[in-house]
Design a protein around this nucleic acid. Structure first.
Length: 299
DNA sequence: CTTATTCCCTGATTGC
DNA sequence: TGCAATCAGGGAATAA
């Protein structure tokens, strides 16, 4: 499930290998619904042909390919979308929806089992993206901003940080990991958070995402990078994928529940439902997590 | 504005 | 063992 760290992993791999390379043609496989929004597949193919990649950006979970002439190809992978960069003559990849043939012979393929992934074409990427909140490392993403946006909320805080208009790029895995890091139970309301907890939440979101980027994403089931390789975060999580296993900090069995319609993993001891202070101080908790976690280049 | 619900998809998993 | 029902979930759309 590509979230910000998985999309950023792909971006970092694609940019040096695509910049300066020209598109020869784009071909589509049969399949409904179309993987393209706004324009027909023929228009998409015609628009890309002959253009040169000038850069690969990212906004939230969206990839943003900058092409010559100011055109932008904006791609969301949703649940199972994969971008695969294959050498000339590689065997076909299952579930390929369209292929961008490059002039040097390589093929950039978009494969997507569940067909949720979407591509758009625009001169201004905002035209094919919804309104997104700040990037997690943007100066605007402050504890005060979070409190202003979420501090009156009655619903589960987890649902609010999954909202892409609040902060761009957090999905189910990193929401659970961030809430664990912050020591906040996912069903607590925004209104219940104490002032210090907004800072913890902001820091925890940044930490969880940086940890994911550092380990090149999480491959619990469907994530593969542009060479078809898996990430490593799934082996270094604190709650996601660890139901019934002991918490790495306190040993309490990790619980799996359902919050806001999403599978949710948490430590009932480290993340109390009330904001009562736990045995371990917050700073000690952060130090223990930092000492334990692998990798993790901070932006 | 917020919050809850449904839908889109299909491979994997679960239940009888 | 086999087949049907359920699950996985990002985000758009819809409703309240």
């Amino acid at each position: 499930m590509p979230e910000l760290p998985e999309v950023e992993t792909i971006r970092r791999q694609l940019e040096p290998r695509l910049v300066g390379v020209r598109v020869r043609e784009v071909t589509f496989e049969e399949g409904k619904p179309s993987a393209i929004d706004g324009v027909t597949e023929a228009e998409f193919a015609r628009s890309l042909a002959g253009r040169t990649f000038e850069g690969v950006g990212r906004r939230g979970k969206y990839l943003d390919f900058r092409l010559s002439g100011g055109l932008r190809w904006v791609q969301h992978l949703r649940m199972t979308g994969k971008l695969l960069l294959r050498p000339c003559g590689s065997p076909s990849d299952a579930y390929t929806r369209f292929t961008v043939y490059l002039e040097d012979g390589r093929e950039l393929r978009f494969a997507d089992v569940r067909k949720f992934g979407r591509a758009g074409l625009a001169l201004n990427p905002r035209d094919v993206m919804p309104a997104l909140g700040p990037e997690p490392w943007d100066d605007a993403f402050t504890p005060g901003y979070l409190r202003e946006r979420l501090g009156r909320g009655k619903g589960p805080i987890k649902a609010r940080i999954l909202d892409q208009s609040v902060v761009a790029g957090v999905g189910n895995i990193y929401a659970d990991e961030a809430l664990f890091h912050a020591g906040i139970h996912p069903v607590r309301s925004g209104a219940s958070l104490r002032p210090a907890e907004w800072t913890r939440l902001r820091d925890a979101i940044q930490w969880a995402l940086a940890h994911g980027v550092g380990l090149r994403g999480a491959s619990f089931r469907d994530f593969f990078d542009i060479d078809g390789e898996q990430g490593a975060l799934q082996n270094d999580t604190f709650v996601m994928g660890r139901a019934t296993l002991p918490c790495r900090l306190c040993g309490t069995p990790i619980q799996k529940t359902r919050v806001a319609g999403r599978g949710t993993s948490l430590c009932p001891h480290c993340q109390p439902r009330s904001s009562a202070p736990s045995a371990m101080t917050y700073n000690a908790r952060c130090d223990a997590i930092a000492a334990m976690a692998a990798g993790g280049s901070v932006e």
